[in-house]
Amino acid sequence: MGKTHLKMTVNGKDVELMAEPRQLLIHVLREELNLTGAHVGCESSHCGACTVDMNGMSVKSCTVFAAQAQHAEITTIEGLGSPDGLHALQEMFKEHHGLQCGYCTPGMITRAHRLLQENSNPSEEEVRFGISGNLCRCTGYQNIVKAILAAAAKMNEMKESA
């Protein structure tokens, strides 16, 4: 099958690659760019394990063609925080036991990150609604919600002190 030349910005870096028209964004990220943080859980947009940020919106990359990401700006879990300095969300997920098997975590944190860009001071209800496109089988969400609220508070504190 013929391939298309694609250019996109992933985690702040310009990348170029060749992809088939049918290739999904999640597979390009994971297999061509070796960004294996986002996972495949259902291939039908239900579970959100594949959530990445595309042009300022959360998308489920298992139902986005790579070709649709032409010239897009993409952020994956690998673009948040670093081993030397975890992002507030990453830190709070650990602090509040917001993860167990870790499979949903990259999508969940990436989604939470966008949610907090949209609403920096959400209520519990807004967090629950805001992450309802991301499934977790292990935690029952209670500690995820706690972690996101704690991260919001921390991020607001950091903003104020800056």
Partner: peptide, 16 residues
């Protein structure tokens, strides 16, 4: 958690 929250887990489909 440090590796899982950074997307650095190593699940079988991550293998190449």
């Amino acid at each position: 958690d440090a590796r899982f929250t950074q997307g650095k887990g190593n699940y079988v489909d991550d293998m190449k």
